[in-house]
Amino acid sequence: MFKRIITLVILVPVAIVLILLSVANRQTVTLAFNPFEPSDPVLSQSAPLFVFLFAALMLGMIIGSLATWFNQGKHRSRARNKAQEAVKWHSEADRQKAKATELARSSTLPPPAESAPRG
């Protein structure tokens, strides 16, 4: 519940700011990829400013996510190895338990013979 409240406290203001930016920046701008000839139509793109802002935001999120994913690879690998080791030891424990049960069944002593009633 606390996590949901924190998420709402953060996401609602961010959404409001993004909507306000989108409404305020509807004018068309040209993004030029050629620094030597900015008016080159082949290497320039015209769109509303908020489109470029959202594209930059999404690109940053993707790059950040990929960097985090690659950086945490060693932790995922270690977790995978520990999980495999845990499965191995659980199966070994089950095997030993079955072996002990079988050994206990086979080595049970016959019940003592009842002696004749004294009388």
Rank of each mutant, 00 (worst) to 15 (best):
F70R: 08
V23F: 15
K88M: 07
S106D: 10
W89Q: 10
I62S: 04
A32E: 05
L20W: 14
I63N: 01
E37T: 09
S44H: 06
Q72V: 12
W89T: 11
A24S: 11
R80D: 13
L11Y: 07
A79G: 00
E85T: 05
K82M: 14
A83F: 10
L11V: 11
R78H: 07
V23W: 13
R95K: 14
P35W: 04
E37Y: 11
W89R: 12
R26S: 10
A83R: 06
S22C: 06
L49K: 14
L8N: 08
A79S: 08
K82E: 15
T68I: 13
N25L: 08
M58H: 12
V87A: 09
R105Y: 08
Q84M: 09
Q72C: 02
I6Y: 06
S39D: 14
N71W: 14
S44F: 03
S65K: 04
A104T: 08
W89C: 00
A24E: 09
I6P: 02
I16W: 08
F52H: 06
R80E: 14
L21T: 06
R26P: 00
L49S: 09
T68K: 04
L57Y: 12
I6G: 01
Q96F: 07
P41L: 03
K97F: 13
L66R: 11
T101L: 08
A104E: 14
R76W: 12
R4E: 15
K74V: 08
L18V: 15
R76D: 09
K82N: 14
R78L: 15
H75W: 09
R26D: 03
P48L: 00
A15P: 00
S44P: 08
A55L: 15
A56Y: 13
L20A: 15
P48S: 07
V17M: 08
P38Y: 02
F33H: 02
P38M: 01
A15C: 04
A93C: 05
Q84G: 10
A15R: 00
P48K: 00
I6W: 09
S39W: 07
